[in-house]
Nucleic acid binder design. Sequence first.
DNA 1: GTCAAGACGGCACGTGCCGTGCCGTATGCT
DNA 2: AGCATACGGCACGGCACGTGCCGTCTTGAC
Lengths: 177, 177
Amino acid sequence: MRAALELARESGYAKLNIEAVAARAGVGKHTVYRRWPSKGLLFLDSLLTVNEPVLDIPDTGDVVADLRRQICAAVDLLGMPPWGPLYRDLVGEAQHDPAVAAGLNERFIRPQTEKTVARLEVAKAQGQLAPDFDLGLGMAILSGPLYFTFLITQEPVTHDYVDRVLDALFAGMRPRH
Amino acid sequence: MRAALELARESGYAKLNIEAVAARAGVGKHTVYRRWPSKGLLFLDSLLTVNEPVLDIPDTGDVVADLRRQICAAVDLLGMPPWGPLYRDLVGEAQHDPAVAAGLNERFIRPQTEKTVARLEVAKAQGQLAPDFDLGLGMAILSGPLYFTFLITQEPVTHDYVDRVLDALFAGMRPRH
DNA sequence: GTCAAGACGGCACGTGCCGTGCCGTATGCT
DNA sequence: AGCATACGGCACGGCACGTGCCGTCTTGAC
């Protein structure tokens, strides 16, 4: 996994190949194939293992501030080369390898979703959220715009941008009475 | 482009290769390479050309209903095999080919964004949106959650889901007064 | 009407990486 | 001590890449 990450950082995920990984690791190709069925899953494993300390959401009593903290931390990680492009490549791989998509969901998205929902649950209990707000959608609504910017328009995501997204979401879009 | 789409629909984008496209089109490989520098851009061109009638947003006076109409139309297209997986592959390709990312933005995302912003502009002028709502974020906030579901969690996107997203966004998340 | 320039289809080549098979060695378990 | 297993190293066939070359056909200028 270390060899895979090194090579990916040096020449990008596109140039990454198992032959080189095996060579760099001083290992036969068989040994790699014995553990990972594909380049995609090896890369997924490498990337998630190294950043395993999943970003937790603090609880200071203010949902928006807490979400902001967590999101900014994630954004900072992705903005710090070479992690941004590598995560983009990972998501890209997930688009044509169902196994990578499944792994990404189970090992990264789902835990993150559960933490987000849990934090929103507390907020709702404290009256900081509309009582009928659909928590299951929370993750998609909060993360979606940022993933969109990161993956689709591929503009840089700044803290200011995070603020504006959170503002727009929490202020609502309808005119206030 | 027709040959490329046929082959992609038959065996998926992953198996698509320029050699086969040239053969299917009854054409030399040079002729393909002369027009498209890469498989990704050929695919982008093929996919967008065939669906060029970009989905317009109607204006019945009710923003939410109009957005719902347009989004559901897009969702229906993506839910209709084989377009969903093909668009996923296209976005995937954009993650490691900057040229594809740029083309996707210029030819698909930007026009769509402009239409969305224009429609929101009207809505704001009619008082259906908060006067300080950040229209530039509109596209990301409206599309983001759906792209997230489509690309990341890869769950099916139903009309009901679209409704719930729009509800959550327009109802706001804060408790109402 | 002629002719040069360019685009074309067809074919072959060298290259890179795939995934797998085989061999001889080393390690670890009983 | 003996055996099974994992290993590193190597070689292979296969595929698609991108690029030459060749002979033909179309096109446009004069």
